[in-house]
Simulated scan of single mutants.
Amino acid sequence: MVASLYLSFTDYSLIGDANWIGLENYQRMLEDPRLLTSIGVTFRYVFISVPLQLAMALGLAMVLDRGVRGLPIYRSIFYLPSLLGGSVAIAIMWRQVFGTEGLVNQVLAIFGVQGQGWISHPDYALDTLIILNVWTFGSPMVIFLAGLRQIPVMYYEAARVDGAGPIRRFLNITVPLLTPIIFFNLVLQIINAFQAFTQAFIVSGGKGGPSDSTLFYTLYLYERGFTAFDMGYASALAWLLLMIIGLFTALNFFMSKLWVFYGD
């Protein structure tokens, strides 16, 4: 980290010596249109995929918490995408699923709908990656399931006696008592989403997709450092990403005082 901080103030091509240039790399960010594009793409990915992923994870955790027979099997099956979601193999598979001749278009053809190359269309390419991230809901689901198991059953029994329906019990018992788990998953998944790289690199062919529609921040950082051999600027980009993640994490901790409830 110290070395990258030093390199962020240099002009370094990975081959020759690093030449000190001061704040030029950081000033250059203000005039870099592709950097702004990558930030916009990444923010859209984070703020859409993370809430959808957590909602999916919580919903399935509540279903499994009802005492489904064979729970360990279902839990393992649902957790498997989280283990594989960041792999190259799954990214390649996803590219085939949403390709012109992929599974999605084959299903649409059954209903007489003409499909298209979803990953090659600038309006839909990012959506395919959002779906991929939502699909890897297994890790937060297991954590939600553990949290649900810690809520005393007597609270629900008392609520039923008072005439509270399922929605009322969910909003007044489940959500407040589960807020520490929701907060933990939220912070963890936001950090992971900001660092997403493999899916975008494989699906877009490492070039940011059509019209830079899948140009994630990490993908642009990789492009500057290891394709353009502009490691000084890439190091500055890495530190900017660290500051962005730190800012959102600090903001989450600050806002948690308003909605996270602990036992004490």
Rank of each mutant, 00 (worst) to 15 (best):
F197T: 05
A89T: 13
M29T: 07
L258W: 09
K207V: 10
Y155D: 12
S87V: 08
S76A: 14
Y79L: 08
N185Q: 15
I92E: 15
P72M: 01
S213D: 02
M93V: 12
F47K: 07
F226T: 05
G165W: 06
G206L: 13
V63C: 04
Y220H: 09
T136V: 14
V97H: 03
G246T: 10
L178D: 09
F226L: 14
P152M: 14
L83P: 10
N105W: 06
E31K: 15
I191Y: 06
L60E: 05
L58P: 02
G86W: 11
P176Q: 13
L23A: 14
V68E: 00
Q27P: 02
T218K: 03
L258M: 06
R149T: 14
V63K: 00
G263V: 10
N185S: 11
Y124M: 04
W135R: 05
V2P: 03
M1P: 14
D65T: 11
S87I: 12
T179I: 02
R34S: 11
S76H: 00
A3F: 13
I173S: 10
Q116P: 00
Y79H: 02
W259D: 04
L5P: 00
L215Y: 04
D123E: 06
L219F: 02
P180S: 11
L237Q: 05
G16L: 08
L7Q: 13
R160T: 08
S82M: 04
A146D: 09
M62P: 03
S120F: 11
V175Y: 11
Y74Q: 02
A200K: 00
A55W: 08
E157D: 14
A125W: 00
Q53H: 08
W259M: 02
T42E: 04
L171G: 07
W118M: 03
L14T: 12
I73P: 00
G206R: 09
I130Y: 03
F253P: 07
G67M: 10
N19S: 15
A238D: 03
L188A: 12
I131C: 07
Y6Q: 07
L178P: 02
T174A: 13
D32Q: 03
F170I: 06
M1A: 15
G67N: 09
R28E: 11
L23E: 07
P33Y: 12
L258N: 07
W94K: 08
A238C: 10
R69S: 09
D212K: 01
W20G: 00
L35P: 06
I15L: 13
L64Y: 02
N25Y: 06
E157K: 07
R168N: 13
L84W: 06
Q199D: 04
S49L: 09
A159M: 10
T100L: 10
Y26F: 13
V134Y: 02
F98N: 01
I181V: 15
Q27F: 10
F111E: 03
E31A: 15
G206N: 05
G70L: 01
G263P: 03
F248L: 12
V104C: 00
Y262Q: 06
V161K: 04
E223N: 14
P51F: 11
D17H: 11
A57D: 10
E31Y: 15
I245M: 10
Y12F: 15
I190H: 08
I143D: 11
V68F: 01
E31V: 14
V142A: 15
L23R: 02
Y6W: 08
G59C: 04
L60P: 03
G115W: 08
G246W: 10
T100W: 03
